[in-house]
Computed example of a mutant assay.
Amino acid sequence: MLELRPSCECCDRDLPADAAEARICTYECTFCADCVERCLDGRCPNCGGNFVPRPVRPSALLAKDPASTVRVFQEGLHRP
């Protein structure tokens, strides 16, 4: 099951469980669509893989399997 991490690892933007702009790689590294396009050139800085839109977990299932609250932020990734 996906962790549904709560923020972008590049800019620390909030990405709630229903965020349409959340992107993940095969290892669940989580970034916002803006950073994927503008800062990361579509490639994960951790594994080199590509990104896909993160699936949205239906709200009825979030009570049983909540999204993660652990924020991951990598200082220095963000390029204006």
Score class of each variant (00 low, 15 high):
1 M>H: 12
3 E>V: 00
4 L>K: 05
5 R>T: 03
5 R>Y: 08
6 P>K: 03
8 C>L: 02
12 D>Y: 02
12 D>A: 13
12 D>W: 01
12 D>F: 03
13 R>C: 13
14 D>R: 14
16 P>I: 01
17 A>K: 01
18 D>A: 13
19 A>S: 14
21 E>H: 13
22 A>K: 00
24 I>F: 00
24 I>E: 02
25 C>Y: 01
25 C>Q: 05
25 C>D: 15
28 E>A: 08
30 T>S: 10
30 T>M: 02
32 C>F: 07
33 A>V: 03
34 D>E: 12
35 C>Y: 02
36 V>A: 10
37 E>A: 15
37 E>Y: 02
37 E>R: 15
42 G>Y: 03
43 R>L: 10
44 C>V: 03
44 C>Q: 03
45 P>Y: 02
46 N>T: 12
48 G>A: 08
48 G>D: 07
51 F>C: 10
54 R>N: 01
54 R>S: 03
54 R>C: 00
55 P>Y: 03
56 V>I: 14
58 P>K: 07
59 S>G: 09
60 A>L: 10
60 A>N: 12
61 L>A: 13
62 L>F: 01
65 D>L: 15
66 P>M: 06
67 A>P: 06
67 A>E: 11
67 A>D: 10
68 S>Q: 06
69 T>K: 11
75 E>N: 08
75 E>Q: 10
76 G>Q: 10
76 G>A: 08
76 G>E: 09
78 H>M: 06
78 H>Q: 12
78 H>K: 15
79 R>K: 15
80 P>I: 02
80 P>F: 05
